[in-house]
Amino acid sequence: MALDKIGIAKRIAQEVQDGFYVNLGIGIPTLVANYVRNDIEVEFQSENGVLGMGPFPFEGEEDADVINAGKQTITTMPGASFFDSSMSFAMIRGKHVDLTILGAMEVSENGNIANWKIPGKMVKGMGGAMDLVASAENIIVAMMHTNKRGESKILKQCSLPLTGVGCVTKVVTNLAVLEVKNNAFNLLERAPGVSIEEIQNATEGTLIIDGEIPEMILS
């Protein structure tokens, strides 16, 4: 069965390693924090200016001055720090953040990503996404494999205005885990019960299937 958003978040959480500084985008990526193993040390960075982000506050303890990049009220963990926007992006641009997890509308086989604009329809802006994808070396995209009309979002070429070029390293969708390498999507894992054929049908970009493809193991 295809994964729901929580399933995608759980699978991506397995990519988070001990000692990582991690930037989480808005949407599914935000959920990843809930499923990271609790026997490892990880610090979450939010580009509005906090490192060491904690869970949401208890009711009545919300502080208007302590939010994440999604403008949600948050708390901080022991050892956290606040800083200005320029320093925040020094962390990002300077490659001090180990892993970036963000959403996308489209990705292509050469590692391009589009997630900030639908011409004539929707323009919300890129926020920090362009800075993140231009600098991070380890970028995982969390997304649905197809759109509401069933059309693939895993493409040969993006049709929407780009956020970054040649930057995506891994994609985790409701159907599969894909590694972006040598101008192709390499199928690494299938969602539990999802066939290779289903993934092929939902993928417009070049899909490489090498050997036995295991199912994801989700706890």
């Binding site: 580009e47 200005d84 926007s85 320029s86 925040s88 992006f89 990002i92 641009r93 391009n112 890129m126 926020g127 920090g128 996404a129 362009m130 800075d131 231009a134 600098s135 205005p161 780009l162 956020t163 970054g164 070029v165 040649g166």
Partner: peptide, 27 residues
């Protein structure tokens, strides 16, 4: 891009006329 926006402010503050950033290349 947000980091570019911040740095365009900081550059003005710090007396730099311009700077190079990887953000937005190819877009």
């Amino acid at each position: 891009p947000q980091g570019t926006l911040a740095e365009k402010c900081r550059a003005a503050q710090a007396g730099f006329p311009a700077f190079y950033t990887p953000a937005g290349y190819g877009t």
